[in-house]
Design a protein around this nucleic acid. Structure first.
Length: 952
DNA sequence: ACCGCCGGGTGCC
DNA sequence: ACCGCCGGGTGCC
């Protein structure tokens, strides 16, 4: 089923064990490019050792002793796992090695003779040591411990010899020393490992059963939710509410007599391990994770009771200045729109009654909590809610909320006991119970959350939302903990981590991490900052839960406070390593775990026999165009010129070595089909011979841009994958840098180009400057603007469509960014509103463009100009339901991918695609050739018959 | 610790 | 006896 993205990559990781080191990234070729592991008896820092945890091998085992039990409180069971920890500062023995139980409580020490040997090994990081105590229970003074030594293959003999020198012999454990590993056969025996095929099947099955049992129960949301939920969203709600209110033991825990027992580590304790009141919502993009969480917030507000609806008055709102970077493109339902003006000036936005405006600057000065005023506290006062969500997010809105004599903020000099007396039904809970949901997301989706709250929360539910963002954000914990929702970003939380911030002091009702996979790096400050947040209810939203490997999952489990995985050692010993070694038990445990805490549906998941979401239809039309007589004249002249050049190459037998020049002719012809102004006056400038190295360099760079923009060779012919760091050879063929370097290295010193067998030297390779691969530079931008046949056809279609339905949005796609620029002029002339996305834009500009286009705001642009290659598969332009493909691509997959940017989850309308194709031109040939694009260079140009040239 | 080790007391059978 | 043996004191690193 789904999760192919995850399966592939994690499998690769899993299987990498068998290759020795992990690290193949993209193409098979890259396998050879792995940097050699340095063979020094390593004194690696622990971080790099951490990275490779999966590739460690078992050196052997040893029975040792734990002593000094009577001095410590940590107790252990028979067969319980223990952790070994160096204690270099022990005053009695600098070789001391502590032994801790799963909970981190000290059990004792390793006996000193052995400790001396172990200290040697541990301090040099020659091996990782793991212990289990076969007879852990009821020892008064000492107990045996079975130690396993794990390390990198090249250190194996070093460790064995070293131990021998100290008088210890590593080996298989004396029989009877059973392992704490939950029935895990020691992977010294390859016979128990699964085959690659089996492992793959297991991964396939991993998430298959996720939708069983209670996960199909539905729950009606609180009345405060305005949007009606789809069945699968009601299921998500039911599941989340039940998890939040559940008291059941976390997975792998059982109650035995008076103890709670962890079946993975054999650890037991009197105290009940905390239930995981949360989990991972891993629905596919577009299934409504955000809406599901909003429904959860409103439905399970307090003690299983929903958020109150219908109270005209609310309180708990203090008047604080704040700021947030936002554009005006956010969605607003019509009835809410009135309160915001689009021009962003300090205009009144009075949709609610009886408010007076104050200039924001003055407000800021007057009300912001400066350091000197720290002891001051604002008394929240009653405010008539202007709208559903009291989103405090920009100056003018703050004004709308707080301005006016009747709502002037009061403050008191008294410290402490500021009682909040309000009509809010949940006021009493503020002191005793956390009230506030903290949502953390990447900045790029912050505005989406705001939009979604506005859209989905009913107007008479007075949900207080505070955007904790920007330099002026209110850091008063009292203020924050009186909100219903605090919305912030990972960066803010991370930044505040170092400064003892309110975010880390407050006990939150729940914490929601959006795009939770962003915390996958366990060493990142961000991850640590997020882990230290205080809340019982923790949720992770992600579309890609296990992006690269099981390692990613650990960070999430740790955030969820899932015992015993909060410490990485137990996760690694009980799940990650067994799974990566192909142990079935490990996989079963992983499956049980995922099943317990994850809800994931994809677009193909069925609810009551029907797919969760059905995509509307998609229709592709090809519109044939005739060039105007003037355009035709230019086209033919260029075609003749090109034919002459190519004939010459052909006669010289040098067509292949002038590959890029041939493509250049084709590109020029295609450009003329779009607009004559796209083409420089003469071909000769592009194709002229050059002699100096500087000129050659420049020419090659131009060629690589040309080749890339021509769309004919988006894939590297060595690895057959998409180009990764493209470089161009002197003979103008383009490959991944790594691929061609590999070829040169292997075939040295006789390296030849794999395409044309031309001379090939490492030094001659030229890289393409990042993101400059668009052939967008219009050489003739001084010419006065004029339309073209294609532009005219496009404008005609757009105008007609606008008359039919002005709300329909369109994407206009071209491979030539200069063409997009020409289209801009036409759009402006006909007063269409548009935005643009191309490869030259930075990330900020891109997200801005996407957001403004996706917005349903009344003045959001109706047209997106899109360069064919801009953006990845993730690009979501579902606001559009029309696509105009201005020029055909060699690669049909590139076109398909482009269509899918609007024909995807979230699209509600029928999608109509129009491809413009100029009759009797290279474009028609491209349509024919699209399916055999790979033969183009080698076949059409390499063949003996020049009539095969797609130049008529 | 139902051990080992230490060091003082002791000393034919 | 510069030993052996006994039995009490003692005990992680």
């Amino acid at each position: 089923m789904s999760w192919g993205f995850m399966r592939d990559s994690s499998l690769r990781r899993v299987l990498s064990v068998q290759y020795g080191r992990s690290g193949s990234q993209h193409s098979p070729v890259n396998l050879f490019f792995d940097t050699e592991p340095d063979n020094l008896p390593s004194t690696n820092d622990s971080s790099s050792a951490d990275e490779d945890l999966d590739s460690l091998v078992l050196f052997g085992m040893l029975r040792g002793n734990v002593v000094g039990l009577r001095y410590y409180t940590g107790v252990v069971n028979n067969n319980e796992m223990v952790a070994l920890q160096r204690e270099p500062n022990n005053p009695y023995d600098r070789n001391a090695v502590k032994v801790n139980n799963v909970n981190g409580e000290q059990v004792g020490h390793i006996k000193k003779e052995l400790a001396a040997a172990l200290a040697h090994i541990m301090d040099r990081n020659l091996a990782k040591l793991e212990g289990t105590v076969p007879y852990g229970a009821q020892n008064a003074y000492t107990m045996p411990v079975n130690l396993s030594f794990w390390g990198r293959e090249e250190n194996k003999n070093i460790v064995i010899d070293l131990m021998k020198k100290y008088g210890f012999k590593l080996g298989p454990l004396p029989q009877g020393g059973s392992q704490a590993q939950p029935r895990l056969s020691i992977p010294l025996l390859p016979a128990v490992q699964m085959t690659t095929e089996q492992l793959k099947t297991e991964f396939d099955k991993l998430f298959e059963d996720l939708k069983e049992d209670d996960k199909t129960r539905e729950l009606e949301p609180s009345k405060a939710v305005e949007t009606s939920l789809l069945p699968h969203q009601k299921q998500a709600l039911a599941w989340m509410v039940s998890r939040e209110n559940s008291k059941e033991l976390p997975p792998f825990w059982e109650q035995r007599n008076n103890f709670y027992y962890c079946t993975l580590t054999n650890f037991a304790e009197k105290d009940k391990p905390e239930s995981v009141r949360g989990g991972i919502l891993a629905d596919d993009m577009g299934l409504g994770k955000t809406l599901s969480i909003i429904a959860l917030i409103l439905t399970n507000f307090h003690d299983g009771k929903p958020f109150p609806v219908g109270h005209g008055i609310y309180g708990n709102y203090s008047l604080e200045e704040h700021s947030v970077a936002r554009d005006d493109s956010r969605k607003s339902s019509n009835k809410k729109q009135a309160r915001r003006k689009a021009d962003g000036t300090n205009e009144k936005s009075g949709s609610s009654k009886g408010k007076t405006e104050t200039a924001p600057k003055r407000q800021k000065a007057k009300y912001s909590l400066s350091d000197s005023e720290e002891e001051d506290q604002w008394i929240p006062r009653k405010v008539k809610a202007p709208s559903a969500c009291n989103i405090v997010d920009d100056d003018q809105f703050a004004m709308a909320l707080f301005g006016g004599p009747s709502t002037v903020k009061q403050k008191t000099k008294k410290k402490g006991t500021v009682k909040t007396v309000t009509d809010n039904p949940s006021k009493c809970e503020v002191q005793n119970h956390p009230r506030t949901t903290l949502i953390i997301c990447p900045l790029s989706v912050l505005s989406n959350w705001i939009d979604q709250f506005e859209q989905h929360v009913k107007a008479d539910a007075k949900l207080n939302i505070y955007i904790y963002y920007g330099p002026e954000r209110n850091k008063n914990p009292d203020f924050l903990s009186k909100q219903d929702v605090v919305l912030t970003t990972y960066n803010v939380v991370t930044h505040d981590y170092s400064t003892e911030s309110p975010v880390h002091k407050i006990r939150w009702l729940r914490v929601v991490l959006d795009e939770g996979h962003t915390i996958r790096n366990p060493n990142a400050q961000q991850t640590k900052a997020v882990h230290s947040l205080d809340s019982e209810r923790r949720w992770v939203l992600t579309g890609t839960p296990i992006q690269n490997s099981l390692k990613d999952l650990w960070s999430i489990l740790s955030f969820l406070k899932l015992k015993p995985f909060t410490a990485r050692e137990w996760w690694h010993r009980t799940i990650q390593r067994p799974v990566s070694m192909g142990d079935q038990g490990g996989l079963r445990r992983l499956q049980a775990l995922i099943k317990n805490i994850t809800l994931r549906r994809t677009k193909t998941t069925k609810v009551k026999g029907k797919p969760v979401l059905q995509l509307p239809e998609r229709k592709v039309y090809i519109q044939h165009l005739k060039l105007s007589p003037e355009e035709r004249k230019i086209y033919e002249s260029m075609q003749n010129e090109g034919k002459a050049i190519i004939s010459r190459y052909f006669n010289e037998g040098t067509v292949l070595t002038h590959y890029a020049d041939v493509l250049a002719v084709l590109v020029r012809l295609r450009q003329i089909c779009c607009h004559p102004h796209l083409v420089p006056t003469s071909l000769s400038s592009a194709l002229s011979a050059s002699s100096t190295p500087g000129e050659l360099q420049e020419k090659l760079v131009n060629k690589i841009k040309m080749v890339l923009s021509s769309g004919s060779d988006e894939e590297c012919s060595i690895c057959l994958d998409s180009l990764n760091m493209p470089v161009i050879t002197r003979c103008a063929h383009v490959f991944c840098k790594a691929c061609i370097c590999q070829v040169i290295r292997i075939t040295k010193p006789n390296a030849v180009c794999p395409m044309c067998r031309g001379e090939l030297y490492l030094e001659h390779l030229v890289e393409c400057p990042e993101d400059e691969c668009d052939l967008g530079d219009s050489q003739n931008n001084n010419q006065t603007w004029m339309s073209s046949s294609k532009i005219t056809a496009l404008m005609h279609a757009l105008t007609e469509q606008k008359e039919k339905d002005p709300n329909i949005k369109s994407i206009i796609v071209s491979q030539f960014t200069a063409f997009l620029s020409l289209i801009e002029t036409a759009l402006r002339e006909s007063s269409f509103t548009f935005t643009r996305l191309d490869g030259s834009m930075n990330q900020k500009k891109r997200t801005d463009a996407i957001q403004s286009f996706q917005s349903s705001h009344y003045d959001s642009p109706t047209i997106m100009l899109l360069s064919l290659k801009a953006g990845g598969v993730g690009l979501n332009l579902t606001a559009a339901s029309r696509v105009f493909l201005m020029d055909p691509a060699w690669n049909p997959a590139a076109e398909e991918q482009c269509f899918d940017r609007c024909h995807r989850l979230g699209q509600t309308k029928e999608v109509i695609i129009t491809k413009f194709v100029v009759k009797d031109s290279v474009e028609e040939n491209m349509l024919k050739i699209q399916n055999k694009k790979r033969e183009l260079a080698a076949g059409a140009f390499g063949g003996n018959n020049i009539s095969q040239l797609p130049v008529k």
